[in-house]
């Protein structure tokens, strides 16, 4: 499988370099802002400081989303594979459909794991700078966000194997995100209103309290099981789509 992984790496490398650059810029700016809040001029403006202190815990988790978003090129190359004839070429060789799909899922998994490690490192640095030693919470939040990103990535790839054009994938994804948004936004608004200015807004704080209280101890487990289910179902559906020969 390493040759196929290498093929995808060479094709998407440019996008990952861009992803790293965006992340590096974001990390640098946010670290500078944090340092400025703690030691610089911003600290002298008490009103701004209060607002930024409250917003900052959320901002630091944004990094978790940036890398996978900027490096979503792997999804794009499934269509590129179809258009260049690469998938057809593979099907004229002894490479099985399962192997083709497994390689794509594997590559996406690796990229999200790399992003996860980078995100984790970044958040740890921010915490050290802030003097915040709540690493357990930190690890959990980053893991949950990256887990959700991974599920989204597998879902996206499955759609790309099933559907024939990018527009259909985009429309379907907007639909799913829209439904999730409609379900979550009222709770988030309500919660934000109730919270007012809080010391820390975590992923859990953005969910309805009752629901979150019930699922909080199992959040990591739920995400882990979710990843497995989406990966297995996505893999099987994608292989089926690949095996569905031209009509």
């Amino acid at each position: 499988m390493k040759g196929l992984l290498y093929n995808d790496y060479r094709i998407t490398r440019k996008f990952y370099v861009m992803g790293f650059l965006y992340c590096g810029m974001f990390a640098l700016v946010s670290i500078l802002i944090r340092m400025s809040m703690l030691y610089g001029n911003i600290a002298h403006d008490s009103e701004t400081l209060a607002t930024m202190q409250n917003d900052f815990p959320l901002i630091r988790y944004l990094m978790c989303l940036i890398f996978p978003l900027t490096s979503s090129a792997e999804g794009e190359i499934i269509f590129a594979d179809k258009n260049t004839g690469w998938l057809r070429f593979c099907q004229t060789t002894a490479v099985t459909d399962k192997r083709i799909v497994a390689e794509k899922f594997c590559f996406r998994f690796i990229t999200v794991i790399v992003a996860y490690l980078i995100d984790l490192g970044y958040v740890v640095i921010l915490n050290i700078l802030s003097g915040d030693m709540m690493y357990r919470n930190l690890f959990k939040n980053v893991t949950v966000i990256c887990g959700i990103v991974l599920m989204g990535a597998f879902f996206d790839m499955t759609l790309r194997f099933i559907l024939k054009n990018k527009q259909s994938v985009t429309l379907l994804e907007i639909g799913v995100i829209g439904i999730l948004g409609i379900a979550i936004v009222p709770y988030m608004m309500n919660k934000m209103k109730k919270l007012g200015i809080t010391d820390e807004a975590t992923v859990g704080d953005l969910l309805p309290i009752e629901l979150f209280t019930q699922i909080k101890p199992y959040l990591l487990f739920i995400v882990f099981v979710g990843i497995i289910i989406v990966a297995v179902v996505g893999f099987l559906v994608s292989v089926r789509a690949m095996q569905r020969r031209e009509n």
């Binding site: 499988m1 390493k2 040759g3 196929l4 290498y6 093929n7 060479r10 094709i11 440019k14 190359i77 590129a80 594979d81 260049t84 004839g85 690469w86 057809r88 070429f89 593979c90 060789t93 002894a94 490479v95």
Partner: peptide, 21 residues
């Protein structure tokens, strides 16, 4: 038509083909 991605070169293609065949 060439079925390989156009960002590759012949040397890189050899690594990929070694996995396929």
């Amino acid at each position: 038509e060439l079925p390989f991605h156009e960002v590759l070169n012949a040397r890189q293609l050899s690594v990929v083909m070694a996995d396929i065949f």
